[in-house]
């Protein structure tokens, strides 16, 4: 009976951290370590199931940052410490950190796209020697929408970090305002095969940010994106996440952009 991969397992919530009005990070007990960039199918029986990427990995736990925008995510936001979440996974292809060894890595994340890259930044924060250089470019809609503010402040100590908001709303005291695409030019590029660029965010943000990097001479093979789609199974069966011959749940969510840009919805 336990061989059925669709049956989720109970996991305890051991930490809840409110990031914004909409987003909270849930720390969940987990005895096996997933790969960064992978996702779990998270559910509350009676309400439903949803795919959520991992926003942090530690000893005996994982973090998941969940945006309160749907039926299930709303229900999750009602949960307290010590409550149970039901998970199955991890699923999908994550980031291959091996490939970034000694490289100049640029991470550009828009909005909640910062969640899946957080473990990567965190990893290099603690293992800076594994990488030549790490540049961070984060964009949020408004100052209120900024997630992981404390983390970003900490990361800033070790990495070049650009933090921008689309709309300052009169309360933003940061240096940068405007779309993330406008700040791509501020990243100093390295030679072709010495650098990799990770771009994660809403589909439009990915498209235009990638275009900026490509315009500046970064080749598509050096760009890595993570794609979000509706999913019902996470196992290549339900068909919701299919684009072209690819199933995002199986072949992704992390793709090289030379594959991803050919995938037309």
């Amino acid at each position: 009976m336990n061989k059925n991969p669709l049956i989720p397992k109970p996991h305890k919530i051991i930490g809840i951290n409110r990031e914004t009005d909409l987003e909270s990070t849930f720390r969940i007990e987990m005895d096996t370590a997933p790969v960064m960039g992978q996702f779990y199918m998270v559910s509350i029986p009676r309400i439903g199931e949803m795919p959520i990427s991992i926003s942090g990995i530690g000893q005996g736990w994982i973090d998941m940052t969940i945006r309160n925008v749907g039926k299930v995510s709303q229900a999750v936001h009602f949960l307290d410490m010590e409550s149970t979440l039901f998970l199955r996974g991890p699923y999908g292809n994550g980031f291959c950190l091996e490939e970034f060894k000694g490289q100049h890595l640029v991470i550009a994340a828009g909005g909640s796209g910062i969640a899946p890259v957080r473990p990567i930044v965190e990893y290099y924060y603690n293992n800076q020697h594994e990488i030549d250089k790490l540049d961070l470019l984060f964009g949020f809609k408004t100052p209120d929408a900024i997630m992981f503010g404390k983390d970003i402040k900490r990361w800033k100590e070790r990495f070049k970090t650009i933090l921008t908001v689309d709309d300052a709303c009169g309360i933003w005291d940061g240096e940068c305002v405007g779309l993330i695409t406008g700040y791509v030019k501020d990243i100093k590029l390295s030679e072709y095969d010495r650098m990799d660029v990770i771009i994660i965010g809403p589909p439009v943000m990915i498209k235009f940010t990638a275009a900026e990097f490509i315009k500046r001479g970064v080749s598509e093979e050096r760009i890595i994106v993570s794609m979000e789609r509706r999913m019902s199974c996470g196992l290549g069966k339900c068909g919701h996440c299919k684009i072209g011959e690819h199933y995002i749940c199986l072949d992704g969510p992390v793709f090289r952009y030379n594959d991803a840009f050919k995938m037309i919805d």
Partner: peptide, 30 residues
């Protein structure tokens, strides 16, 4: 197909997870 959870009208603590056919032409598929 699409997976849905339902709970029973008489007891919201009991229910089932089930899947039904889905159509890539019908609104809501993505």
């Amino acid at each position: 197909h699409t997976t849905n959870d339902i709970f029973y009208d008489d007891n919201s603590l009991a229910g089932e997870r089930r899947r039904t056919w889905a159509s890539c032409h019908v609104d809501g598929f993505t």
